[in-house]
């Protein structure tokens, strides 16, 4: 397996060698929204509130897991020359089936997420993952990778949506109960009681500005941790994996 993923080094420049690394890679080092900067169309369109970000994140994760595992299972049968149309057919088919199933059997959730689901087809992050990873890896690895990438995308969307929501409307997780059920009403917080917040945060330019801020913060954290622990823990871990 070790020769399979030479295209995806960790932040230390070492090749990814364990399932745990596949997972954390998607969550942080190679986060779709913050590092790969893929799928910006749904990111910008949807993150006007934390709840919307969460909904889009969950829907994308589900589609990503199904498509990545399917592509991985079929990877020996799919000819390299026609892999893109084949993968697009698989992704679009999955999205449509998820869309139909949710519309029929999870209608309340569909009313909140319905708009986002069709948008997932246009999310190049999923095509990117199937192309860069699932085509070359066994299903278990593809599954872990898809879960990591999906959750990484989800947290980035929730944080970005949360920031824009607090600044733009003064609330956090407004209408979360319509997405998660009435048990989650406690999530809905009014942070600042204002009639209308700073509109810029909710408009598209605000999305770009705050995404930029998030990327900068992530880089700052990365360079700080790289300075703080250049020798001890990280190196130990890598040695342990190589043994």
């Amino acid at each position: 397996m070790s020769e399979g993923c030479n295209s995806c080094p960790t932040s230390n420049g070492e090749a990814v060698t364990s399932y745990k690394d596949y997972f954390s890679f998607g969550i942080w080092e190679n986060n779709i929204a913050l590092v790969q900067l893929l799928g910006l169309c749904p990111v910008m369109a949807v993150t006007t509130s934390a709840t919307n970000g969460l909904g889009m994140g969950i829907a994308t994760t589900v589609v990503m897991i199904i498509s990545c595992v399917l592509v991985s299972v079929l990877r020996d049968v799919i000819p390299a020359e026609v892999r893109n149309p084949v993968m697009i057919a698989i992704i679009a088919g999955t999205v449509t089936l998820v869309d139909l199933a949710m519309n029929a059997w999870m209608h309340e959730l569909y009313k909140v997420l319905g708009l986002f689901i069709a948008l997932i087809v246009t999310n190049c992050a999923i095509l990117g993952r199937t192309e860069a990873f699932s085509m070359k890896q066994p299903p278990a690895a593809a599954f872990i990778d898809a879960v990591g990438m999906g959750l990484g995308f989800t947290w980035a969307l929730v944080v970005l949506g949360g920031i824009r929501e607090i600044i733009g409307s003064g609330t956090l997780f407004a209408h979360a109960s319509s997405l998660l059920g009435s048990n989650f009403e406690w999530l809905e917080i009014t942070v600042i009681d204002i009639d209308s917040g700073i509109l810029l945060a909710i408009l598209p330019p605000g999305g770009f500005i705050f995404l930029g801020v998030m990327i900068a913060v992530k880089r700052a954290i990365d360079s700080r941790t790289a300075k703080d622990e250049p020798t001890d823990t990280t190196d130990d871990e890598l040695v342990a994996i190589e043994q």
């Binding site: 049968v77 026609v82 084949v86 088919g93 449509t96 139909l100 199933a101 029929a104 059997w105």
Partner: peptide, 26 residues
């Protein structure tokens, strides 16, 4: 390559038709 694509697209289409028929009434 053409056959693989053809078979896969047929399969996806078949699944979509099935999915649509299953969910239509609901």
């Amino acid at each position: 390559q053409s056959a693989a694509m053809g078979v896969l697209c047929t399969l996806v289409t078949f699944l979509l038709v099935m999915g649509q028929r299953l969910t239509e009434a609901d």
